[in-house]
Design a binder for these strands. Structure first.
Lengths: 230, 230, 230, 230
DNA sequence: AATGAATGAGGATTCATTCAT
DNA sequence: CATGAATGAATCCTCATTCAT
């Protein structure tokens, strides 16, 4: 069956069936945008890519977010707000040693935030804060401060209960927050470019961080040895 | 000694003319580019802005760097290479307790790197690594590893001399590196957007970090108290 | 009887249902379109706006008019066709002096056309004729010529009856048509942008025009004084 | 000389030699824009077309005018401002009968404005005034009012010298302005779409207008007969 | 070497039109 | 019939890069 046509593969350019999913779209677009913004940066991501990754066309994106800037802000808002308030609640109810609290807290936090896509938000904020000043403020109030307060609260609890020796709360908290932020940023920056054996293992990094921390913090240093080997 | 791919560094340019400007141009452009890339990100910085900040015209920029990408790579190379090798050398000659070594090292490092514009490079790398994969590799070899090795060397020295208790060297080093990276990133990201009283003070942050670290590390915990008050 | 090219007017649609709305739709859409096209121009008006002003959804508009272009042509057709043939009839039956005929005619015309929304059509035609060449032809036959003929007929009548002195009929008519067109355009262009006291009063403008005209036209110049004060 | 290549016409895509003509560009762009805006309307004209007609590339247009809107405003400003002040001066110095003044004035005006591309500006203003409200104001002050004043001044002069009978100055002036505006609009709207024999001849139109006007205006009606037969 | 006018590919956004509901 | 979510061609505008001066 000879044919003069070129590549016969071109059967029929399937029109990629339109789906009407008004409810689901914003979430899908935000997820796609988060991924891409984290991966390539805000400016280097094309609107069309976001749409494509969300499985819709260029035009649809602008149906839900009036501008790329607004999309960006929505991405940050979506992935930041609230997320920490619940963790906060949970912790205030925790019963047990403050050392366990710290250990469990960080482990939990990694599972719920660090290990998810949402962790990319920290890279995003660090990269874009100066281009979106309102964001810096928003994040300071919605993320940094709640976290800071939670950690300070735990440390204070430990001190009050005689478990921890007194320290400069703010900077002790900053130390831990810094470690977590670093971890998240690595995950979305250098790590994907490095061979597996050169990457940090988050769990071990956190464990090491907490161990060092508690070693220096705890009044009864042997308490550290109770820690479940990670 | 790995090098960022692209145009290989030309042989040392002959310096025939007296005109200072001509010699200084590349450096001025690199400095301007560093500032702007750190401030606004690579993609969001216009080539013309870089030229303007360096006090030359658009065309001149492209006389020295064939493309914006090459300019970027040059910025990274310029601010990264070598800078750590010398610190390394200095340290190997240090005499005194390993605790002092750590403390002094970080202080020195902050003065020589963290407090300078060059610290912005960390924000740049974190933000752009995935867009310039060769970069990640370059930095891993030129920065991360030397730092890692240096810190590991110090820790090992402490352990060998019975000053520190044995720890997982790699993750202990990562913890400190993470703290420093976090500090640099904050300086160029959130800090400029926050009121002064909400910013972290680098010196105190470093001091707190080292204190906590040494508290947990030192065999003779009271050794910490020998630390010169920051 | 020329007709604007495009979809030929369908045979009268069967009116089976009682639902007023369905029957009225096209008219409402045409009215909305006329308003908006006149206000903002054809290209600057969005289809959705037209639909919205007619109180229906975007999709419905395209149920009645296959394209924006067709909508435009329909708007012109609707507001132009016929409208002048009846005026014409009426006038041929007029009895009285030709001066009165002219005066009354222009007054009537203003009431029936100039003062209504339909007057906007002249702005539309002037603005869009070159983008819709078929339109110019249509209007030439449906509007300009009938008007021209009517005025010429009146003038000729006056001349024949010895009331008017002989003049170049075509250009005399054009003068009056021009005045009316100018009036309509002002109403829809500059007037809405000017404070009320700087706008022309249509009645006075027409009166002044007719007065000047008749003053120069009438054989018995005092005849002008018979004119009913407007 | 057989060849497997396709159409041999494709010799070398001549790179359309870049010319550096900073001084001339704005004027050329404004001229091109005027033509196109008049021809197709503001919204229906693509920026790129303007650039092409001016013989430059898309980008160059935006080198001289930051946005399409600004280009539009510049076109109006360029073609409106000043143009009437000089005519005004000339006229105040005129010596002779007021009837001649009117006749000569309109003839001159047609030569200097009506017959040039600038006449298109009236179509533009009429079409776009409501989209650019500031323009309406600008034109009212820069064009309408000066013209109105000039004509009023001439009429008043005629009345003062006993040549004209007293009339409502404002509306008499408006009548003449209207006629000229109509003429300009026709030239750029319907006329280009009509066969030559159906178009109005500007000179005759003006002559007819002035004749009718003066016939009604002049105290000595035979004065009209002095008018050179057009 | 330096300049900055000119270019045009690329990206954000709009909007006429389609079509699933 | 009516709706409005979805589409993508079309358009405005930007900016890295080129090149005449």
């Amino acid at each position: 069956m000879p044919s003069l046509a070129g590549t016969p593969a071109e059967a029929a350019p399937v029109p990629p069936k339109r789906e009407r999913r008004k409810e689901a779209r914003p979430g899908e677009l935000l997820a796609a945008a988060l991924e891409l913004f984290v991966e390539k940066g805000f400016a280097a991501t094309r609107s069309e890519e976001v749409a494509a990754r969300a499985g819709v066309s260029k035009g649809t994106l602008f149906l839900y977010f009036p501008t790329k800037d607004e999309l960006f802000k929505a991405v940050v808002r979506e992935n930041v707000s609230g997320r920490f308030r619940e963790l906060n609640q949970e912790f205030r109810q925790f019963e047990g040693s403050s050392a366990d609290m710290l250990r469990t807290g960080l482990r939990l936090w990694w599972e719920r935030v660090g290990a998810t896509q949402a962790s990319g938000i920290s890279k995003l904020i660090m990269s874009e804060a100066r281009n979106f000043p309102e964001l810096a403020d928003f994040c300071q109030h919605e993320v940094i401060q709640p976290c800071q307060e939670l950690i300070c609260w735990i440390l204070q609890r430990g001190i009050d209960r005689g478990e921890f020796r007194p320290v400069d709360l703010r900077y002790a908290a900053a130390n831990t927050i810094g470690a977590m932020v670093f971890l998240m940023m690595m995950k979305h920056s250098l790590a994907p470019c490095l061979p597996h054996d050169q990457r940090l293992d988050p769990q071990r990094f956190i464990a090491a961080h907490v161990d060092t921390l508690l070693q220096g913090l705890c009044v009864r240093p042997h308490g550290v040895n109770d820690a479940p080997a990670s």
